[in-house]
Design a protein around this nucleic acid. Sequence first.
DNA 1: CTGTTAGCGCCTTCAA
DNA 2: TTGAAGGCGCTAACAG
Lengths: 344, 344
Amino acid sequence: MSQQRPGDAGAPTMRDVANRAGVSTMTVSRVLKRDTRVSEDTRRRVLTAVDDLGYRLNATARSLRLGGSGMIGLIVTNLANPFYSRLALGVQEVASEHGLSMLLSNTGEQLDRERGLVEDLASRQVAGMIVVPAGGSHSHLTPAALRDMPVVLASRPPSGMEADCVLVDDFGGARDATARLIAAGHRRIGFLGNPPAIHTGAERYRGYRAAHEDAGLEPDDRLVRRGPADVATAEQAALGLLAPAGPAGTGTAPTALFCTNNRLTQGAIRAVRALELPVALAGFDDFDLADVLGMPLTIVSYDADEMGRQAARLLIDRINGGPAAARPPRRTVLPTHVLRYGPE
Amino acid sequence: MSQQRPGDAGAPTMRDVANRAGVSTMTVSRVLKRDTRVSEDTRRRVLTAVDDLGYRLNATARSLRLGGSGMIGLIVTNLANPFYSRLALGVQEVASEHGLSMLLSNTGEQLDRERGLVEDLASRQVAGMIVVPAGGSHSHLTPAALRDMPVVLASRPPSGMEADCVLVDDFGGARDATARLIAAGHRRIGFLGNPPAIHTGAERYRGYRAAHEDAGLEPDDRLVRRGPADVATAEQAALGLLAPAGPAGTGTAPTALFCTNNRLTQGAIRAVRALELPVALAGFDDFDLADVLGMPLTIVSYDADEMGRQAARLLIDRINGGPAAARPPRRTVLPTHVLRYGPE
DNA sequence: CTGTTAGCGCCTTCAA
DNA sequence: TTGAAGGCGCTAACAG
């Protein structure tokens, strides 16, 4: 069984193994790398020495020598959002299959933090990184800034640069969900979205409008709220929209709301529950127990794990394919599905 | 502005910077490390050269030289469970504050995968690791196996070894929640728990029983199910318990259920909704929208982020405190709070 | 204040 | 089939 050598400070090195087995470090290296050109006898002696000493390869030294760390980086904006934790899980799954470890960091949507983390990953010689960019500026992610280290953006597209990316069909999903509300007879549909500056917010708003246009309707701008970013502010906004006489000057409250993400949908649910109104809700992002809430809910769902997997695959292709500049950037768009929960 | 040197294959090294600035690599190293004993003039020349070349420190080489990687490892069983993603967030937060990066992996509760991941982390020279152990055997986590590399266990205690760990007050939380049900008049309370082999399952069962004993009651073993591990099987088990005449031979269904984790609680919620019975539920782990479900729900809540933070702090103390064997292991137990949602 | 030397642990190259 | 030499990029220790 493996054990420590007493009276020896540090971990044993390849040299220690070599000495014990009576061979050179090169031979040890060959055995460990499963190089075939080693005699069976030597092989066994080396492996015995490895076991006796409890030797473990030093990945840092190996990385330095080989010029690659066998790690990839993942930077997300908010790991507490189930969407991003599933993304991380998907990335990890594929990375693992390829023998890569994953360095994970969270930006909390802070651009300066993102910059620091990108810098740190580059410094650690990761083979590449997947980033959910926090802000509008991507200058720290350009091939020039990263010396052609491969980068894949997830969830939000590159701006002012080119890069592989994996997106959700934000436009299509929003259009389909809104169309469902219209098909169910709703004519006054409120919109609860994050700020227009965020890609998903902008695209999902486009989808909301497109569904109206497809049906020959004109959405009422007074029913549109493009600011809330968390459950509490979304709830307030929804309460405002759903007030008995509707938002200022309209005289009528909307009969349905479309929300662009899970937090906003949850805020809206609270508002609807508090007011005890028969309002239909539609929103992006599926969540647990949506089906037992007992309220009419139209949900745009997509596979966050798969998004992680695809991002990781794009990245690994790029890593294996030589200089990032060599081939044009690829963009993958994940399909969405509209789900229907609760009573009609 | 930083830019690449054309016609130069690899990234610039400290040597390149030194040449350009007309100094030795040592001076560059000093400047980058903010060593004060460098003249202001030299400092500026070096920084200019760094910027011109777009030089970035090679953390791998630095790690090899210094004998530490500046990374910690985190191994969880299931990142898709919000509990563990929040744990990860807490760990990351504290690690970040200490300039440490986090290598994150997921075991999917598979012991052999955990073993491989631990091995990989050790090989990468992490400063220490936090592990949510998947299985009963912790032999790969012993000081002997890891050459005294610091380890902190989270959520489940060490078995057959000593190690720092952070736990939740599983016993107390379960007892308190069950006591609430009893105080509300319930006398037949079903138990839905994961297998006894899992620490949390065993402790929470103890708490369930203790609450009964405290009230001078004897729980009916026929109302106890200690097997389900996911939403679907929990739902089936709950349906069985709640059948009109109760489980086989009892003649009466329980009026309340205690569930030991979020997945089991969700299964029970489905069952209760399907049967349209006025059953009170209690369970471990808070979840979004618990308050708008409109059913009586007693939830044992605790701070998963805080658990991550505490685990990281224990680990960092250990890292800074010399050989792990030097001080006795510490055990932190996080308090729980009982929350009450829905109608009485 | 600055430079020289040496070596962290490993693996590629070349030689035997 | 095996070994010796050299160096990946960096920094402690010791000059000067």
